[in-house]
């Protein structure tokens, strides 16, 4: 499925996307959708809102209180990092007050990586100016240095290692360098969700190469925990540009079943990453011609059109989300 392709836009006269009123399924209208990635988890949302209002204290409290809950910490740092990349005033205030601590350090490192992306923009390489590439490369180096510093301040914290995994591809690590970081992350949290998500991106081939290793990685992780079953869907999503039949693959269908069962458990349905699982499952179910099963997931997602896979489509994220849920409703 390529959700950005609307047949009617390519050839006039072809049927437009299904004209359905998604509100009949209890889904909010398109104009109510939000791509704010802090929203799905209320405590993170309030910390980010405060940070954007230049109050660092709720963020510091959240990170301090939840230290040890690595899933929450990774999600919070990801959302706070984006806020820090937009406006670093609250980070400076935080530093001025505390002189810098392990919580500040980890947000700062991740924020620098967000900043690198915002300086680069998310257009493909050939549509990106030399100074944007330059800025990206320089900022990724700063992010790397900051993350390494953060690992020293919090030796048992996987989060800065996760930042290093996140920047691995942009930084151009070779397999050895990546392997070292990956082992450090695994030693601290073997099932680290975000770490696995970005490791899969690092491992994803650049083109229509062999995706066997990618699926092997995803399946191994999924076998370790249902919380990582989404990786198989993510691998299929990476591969679909080169092989649409991947959505008929039994591995993908099994993974979709596992994610749905996982979401029905209290740990899966109530966790920090519940919405993330719902997104991957919904995208995968629609792609795999099981759109009807995706309807309840879209209903639960409500206005939340943030995160992957939608955010990969940049400014079209909301369009892709909307077209995907419409396909689910008409399935």
């Amino acid at each position: 499925m390529d959700p950005t392709v609307n047949p009617a836009e390519m050839v006039p006269g072809l049927p437009d996307l299904p004209a359905v009123d998604v509100t009949r399924w209890g889904m909010p209208p398109k104009n109510a959708l939000s791509t704010d990635l802090s929203r799905p988890v209320p405590v993170i949302a309030s910390a980010v809102a405060a940070a954007r209002a230049r109050d660092w204290r709720p963020a510091a409290e959240l990170l301090n209180r939840s230290y040890g809950d690595w899933a929450m910490r990774a999600a919070a740092v990801h959302a706070l990092g984006e806020a820090a990349a937009d406006d670093g005033t609250w980070l400076e205030a935080w530093r001025a007050q505390t002189g810098g601590d392990r919580h500040l350090a980890v947000v700062e490192a991740h924020g620098l990586f967000w900043l690198a992306w915002k300086l680069r923009g998310n257009r493909p390489g050939e549509q990106t100016r030399a100074d944007q590439h330059d800025a990206f490369n320089q900022m990724v180096l700063r992010s790397e240095a900051a993350a390494l510093k953060a690992t020293e301040l919090a030796p048992d914290d996987p989060t800065p290692w996760c930042t290093l995994v996140t920047l691995a591809r942009g930084r151009g690590y070779d397999n050895n360098a990546f392997g070292t970081i990956w082992r450090e992350l695994q030693a601290r949290d073997p099932l680290h969700r975000t770490g696995h998500e970005f490791a899969l991106m690092y491992l994803s081939p650049d083109g229509p190469g062999s995706y066997d290793a990618l699926f092997a990685f995803a399946e191994r992780a999924a076998a370790a925990s249902p919380s990582l079953a989404f990786l198989v869907v993510q691998a299929a999503y990476d591969y679909e540009d080169y092989n649409e039949k991947i959505w008929k693959d039994q591995r993908v269908h099994r993974a979709l079943d596992v994610i749905q069962r996982w979401l029905a458990t209290p740990a899966g349905g109530g966790g920090v990453y519940a919405n993330s699982d719902k997104r991957w499952a919904a995208y995968g179910l629609v792609s795999a011609d099981r759109g009807a099963e995706a309807v309840p997931l879209f209903t639960q997602l409500g206005t939340d059109a943030s995160g992957r896979p939608w955010e990969d489509f940049g400014d079209n994220a909301v369009d892709v989300f909307d077209s995907c849920r419409r396909r689910a409703c008409t399935a």
Binding site: R120, G125, P309, D312
Partner: peptide, 12 residues
């Protein structure tokens, strides 16, 4: 550099 917080740049 796919692998940023935005994931892959511009899938559209």
């Amino acid at each position: 550099p796919p692998g940023g917080p935005h994931g892959q740049p511009g899938r559209d």
